[in-house]
Design a binder for these strands. Structure first.
Length: 156
DNA sequence: GCCAACGTTGGC
DNA sequence: GCCAACGTTGGC
């Protein structure tokens, strides 16, 4: 039995990898996640076909810029094995990889970026547990409920 | 560029 | 197992 489609939000710095970059390449391995909670969501929670809100962080107007979908099951992040990579992890081995990722496929750009500033105005509806609007949270991969997904996209 | 909040590391 | 030190995230 397969579960229902789930929803996620994934942050990326547009200087490094933006929604336009994803549109160009089509599918991208979501490498470089080095946070256990975020990894666990990718490894244990994601299924092919799940919806992804593509979020631009650390930029002039942080916010949701597009929609993507999960395009693979979780598999080891190659960059952890590469000594030359910024994401190299000397404690990771091929026998026991530490970091997992999924492929993410472009779906569409939003008509406009939905700014974090605007999203915050709905923080009460989104709920206290929502990492994007909870103070101090830096989680870069987080689950989104169907209701949150609907609300966020209604702002487009 | 600043800095608050957070996660991880490592000495003890 | 505690916790200080450190590095990183990411909004502003």
């Amino acid at each position: 039995m397969t579960d229902r489609k789930r929803y996620w939000l994934m942050k990326s710095e547009p200087d490094a990898f933006s929604i336009d970059d994803l549109r160009k390449v089509g599918v991208e391995p979501w490498n470089g996640v080095r946070n256990y909670q975020a990894r666990n969501f990718m490894r244990d929670g994601m299924q092919v076909g799940d919806g992804v809100l593509f979020y631009h962080s650390n930029c002039a107007v942080p916010g949701i810029s597009g929609i993507a979908k999960v395009a693979s099951k979780a598999y080891p992040d190659e960059t952890q094995f590469d000594p030359k990579s910024h994401y190299h992890d000397p404690k990771a081995t091929r026998e026991e990889p530490r970091w997992m990722l999924v492929d993410v496929a472009f779906e569409r750009k939003l008509k406009r970026v939905i700014p974090l500033e605007e999203i915050k105005q709905h923080a009460d509806v989104l709920g206290e547990g929502f990492a994007l609007t909870s103070k101090g949270s830096r989680l870069s991969v987080m689950p989104v409920t169907a209701a949150q997904w609907k609300l966020l996209l209604s702002l487009e």
